[in-house]
Amino acid sequence: MKEEDRAILEQNFQAKIDNDIRIEPNDWMPDAYRETLIRQISQHAHSEIVGMLPEGNWITRAPNLRRKAVLLAKVQDEAGHGLYLYSATETLGADREDTIDDLHSGKAKYSSIFNYPTLSWADMGAIGWLVDGAAIMNQVPLCRCSYGPYARAMVRVCKEESFHQRQGFEIMMTLAKGSPEQKAMAQDALNRFWWPALMMFGPNDAESKHTAQSMKWKIKRHTNDELRQQFVDVTVPQAELIGLTVPDPDLKFNEQTGHYEYGEINWDEFWQVVKGNGPCNKERVDARRKAKEDGLWVREAATAYAAKKKLRKQAS
């Protein structure tokens, strides 16, 4: 392609985005747009799938049958969301198996929050309330993202996720008004998940290398710090309402701005966990790799059987 042709295509492409016209799979798009989307959507998909593990831990230990059913349904939704998102990456030409192999080799990243352990039942509450709460803040704007299949997947995900945060908050609320041990369990879970939840929005805007381009392409609609602030503003009163304390001595409400000011995030910890040094990075990826390896003979058998069946059908 000639340079000037490409320039025209790129102009038309950006004009479509500026006019809020969605980009669809077969439309022309710049390579960098495609690559950025594949990276972003597959990271998101991996997060859903790896995210099944810390909560999956507690399915067999759920304290009653109602909680067990709810938790199962929630973790199952995450598998569904991963699937919708992998499907969206496939529309960009990224093979699902290759994408998953990148997760297993450590090349692809996923949300660091899932590298923290789930130590008590209250963690099911904290994850639903804080982690899904933070995820929803990230995801709702993505329902309007410029890439059609991603936006449509996000619409579905957001619709399904609306119960996730509520069930988490309900767990926390029940614990917070329960026995002293239960309240302590809830506070301990909040203490451990609060800061990692704030880290979920990613580095500060000044450090975030993709933000400007992604916003221009409308595959990101708010900056990391904007979303983080929104999360803090919404969540702090919820904690107060149920009598739990946000573990941040610097937290205070600024009457003038109408926002909460919060303490410094430990970015060293953030980068260490991203690099693979979190408490459970190895366990999480190993578990996913094992599921894939253990399932190989099953997938092969189904393929072989489908081929036999097809042959028999043709012969008859």
Binding site: L83, Y84, S87, R299, T303, Y305, A306
Partner: peptide, 8 residues
């Protein structure tokens, strides 16, 4: 509504 993988 979307896509998925299946052997048959």
């Amino acid at each position: 509504v979307g896509s998925l993988r299946a052997a048959d």
